[in-house]
Design a protein around this nucleic acid. Sequence first.
RNA 1: GCACUUGUAGCUCAAUUGGAUAGAGCACCUGACUACGGAUCAGGAGGUUAGGGGUUCGACUCCCUUCAAGUGCACCA
Length: 588
Amino acid sequence: MKFIFDAVIKAVKELYGTDIDLAIINIQETRKEFVGQVTLVTFPLIKFSKKSPEQTGNEIGEYFANNLTEIAGFNVVKGFLNLSLTDSFWTNKLFNEILDPKFAQFKLNGKKVMVEYSSPNTNKPLHLGHIRNNLLGFSVAEILAAAGYEVVKTNLVNDRGIHICKSMLAWQKFGNGETPNSSGLKGDHLVGKYYVLFDKEYKKQIEALIAAGNSEEESKKNAPLIIEAQEMLLKWEAGDPDVISLWKTMNSWVYEGFTETYKTLGVNFDKFYFESGTYLLGKDIIEEGLQKGVFFKKEDSSVWIDLTDEGLDQKLLLRSDGTSVYMTQDLGTAQLKYNDFHMDKSIYVVGNEQDYHFKVLFTILKKLGKEGAAGLFHLSYGMVDLPSGKMKSREGTVVDADDLMNEMQQTARVHTENLGKINDFADEEKMELYHTIGLGALKYFLLKVDPKKRLLFDPNESVDFQGHTGPFIQYTHARIRSVLNRVDVVPTEYVYNEKLDSEERDLIVALSNYPEVIQTAAEGYSPAIIANYVYDLAKIYNKFYHEKSILQAESDEIKQFRIKLTIASGKVVKHAMNLLGIEVPERM
RNA sequence: GCACUUGUAGCUCAAUUGGAUAGAGCACCUGACUACGGAUCAGGAGGUUAGGGGUUCGACUCCCUUCAAGUGCACCA
């Protein structure tokens, strides 16, 4: 559509004798209640034409009609100049651009971006909130790759700390040597069970202490279990062989479990970082900041940064005893990641409860003049809540990731069996299909919403399979495949002189928007933009499909043309769904 | 208390980043195959965009304010 922008500049120059900036040209898709496909908003131009919006529109429209071969006609409604492009413009678009194998394939832009996501704790299994995180991270990475970035997907695993020791201690005390093998429990679930058990026993001790006359605060601090857990953490930090060995064993169980969950979810990583390997980093940056005068030291020798000029607070960076805090290690880890990859952009997919932390982190890195600091971005997403409120692992009010994915596949099975369209499938094919549809429904449900908005999930109301859903789009694809499977000769003719029907033209217009949609989604780090686009596209295709016969078209020429439209639609639907991490089936 | 985010149809979400009469899905009502797949399509009903003020040719969008919800404000991570 760039030629229209150029034409507007030229038109204004010739009609009104002014050079105008590209930025003030407002071009949009014509709303469907008006005639045309492309609309120029003329309000911003009247200061150059010195005429009414209507008159300006008419003059520019007249100019276009006389000077642009692509323009078939125009109409003006108030300050809107609606342009109709010729049918041959649109058919050329389909033949030369959309059907080209390179359509929507952006060239590498020479920039590297890191997407850090998932970042689980190794003391409990993944839940619905993690699913949102994983899907967002994976999809954003795919979208950025499609837009021409070189992408590195990383996972910073939180594998140490007091919470890990809690699971370990509970297992040691109450586990009787239970293992994933002996119990048949998935490793992460087994470890999670002991994390919950710790909390239960710990609470009992607190209650007993309170009953014995202690204050609540004292009881929480002095309960034997918590003291033992803290001792265990110290031993871990000191490298105690027994503790380290137990830690390694239990973490390996968790990793086995996570690997399985990631596989079912369809996400992957190029590089893992472990907090056990990064938690001591960052002290050299503290030193650097002090030397540069960006940080300051208090009398007790704790180190701070004053960010009150930025509208933030003073922030502690190093304790008075010289040990690090969360921010210290995140500074160090940011540096480590940069040293490893020298990326231009770095995306952190982390929930919005950490908005302040990342604001501070990025500000500090900028103040230190760190390379890559300008490319830092916190992809902050809203929490997933249940109707009953927040999910709490310790209280067992979580929607478990594995359970949920299982249920989705079961639901897909019920739907599919009721329709009875794939009774000839082998069992293995059926299972694969239930997985495709069940996860498609779940992923679409979570990704179609703007990341920053919080998400309400009602486990009692199953995720829909009809309407604005993943399966609707998957169904559209299966139907397209079904039509194309009946075509024996792939059309090779690339001229078309028939008049376009509105359903055909609408479809080409929608398809031609796809590259720009990828670009917008990449710039906004928003899979939701892709999700909403591909739904619209599927709807437009379904309408076309209903109104127009493809295989029984009025003439062979029209039939060939509609087959090509169908091929193009199937291609874009599949590509867009894959950017969301969703597979599309051949049949369903 | 201070800061950040959110508030759109009964419910779940859109709205091309300031453009036309705010659009979809679910649920509800009505219709459409002896036609390429009915997990579909067409239509109906459903709105003071939380309330109020402002900015301008034009505001769901920007500014101020009130209200509601969520999150954050540890020498925790």
